[in-house]
């Protein structure tokens, strides 16, 4: 068995570089929010956030040097979360458009309010 102690120690500068990159990405995400991106705001913001998360995972949390098992655990949890998100969103996206009903409902509400009032 090999000595495990200072198995993989990066230089302090490596960590400082990662931190600088994270700060730059924070600035980018704020800048992107001000830019006229329309519907692309959230995808771009999530993309930048994912990039930051990957940096933190790989370097700060030593994702690079930890074994396959840790990677499996993280991916498993993310897969599970994506199931929750995608199946639930799929239900909402595939429901028939009932906005006309919503209008009717609020009209009916108005009516009952005025008649009772």
């Amino acid at each position: 068995m090999e000595a495990q102690a200072p198995s993989h120690v990066q230089s302090s500068w490596a960590y400082l570089t990662i931190f600088a990159a994270l700060v730059v990405l924070t600035g980018t995400t704020v800048g992107a929010a001000l830019a006229p991106l329309g519907h692309w705001h959230i995808p771009v913001a999530l993309l930048i956030a994912a990039g930051k998360a990957i940096l933190i995972y790989l370097f700060f949390m030593h994702g690079l040097e930890s074994g396959r098992l840790v990677w499996l655990i993280v991916m498993g949890a993310l897969l599970c979360l994506s199931i929750l998100l995608s199946f639930t969103l799929a239900d909402y996206r595939s429901r028939p458009d009932d906005s006309h009903l919503r209008g009717l409902r609020s009209a009916a509400c108005e009516q009952c309010r005025t008649t009772s009032g």
């Binding site: 199946f87 799929a90 239900d91 996206r93 595939s94 429901r95």
Partner: peptide, 9 residues
């Protein structure tokens, strides 16, 4: 009231 497509899947 879940979408019928979701129900089928």
């Amino acid at each position: 009231g879940q979408s019928v497509y979701a129900s089928l899947i």
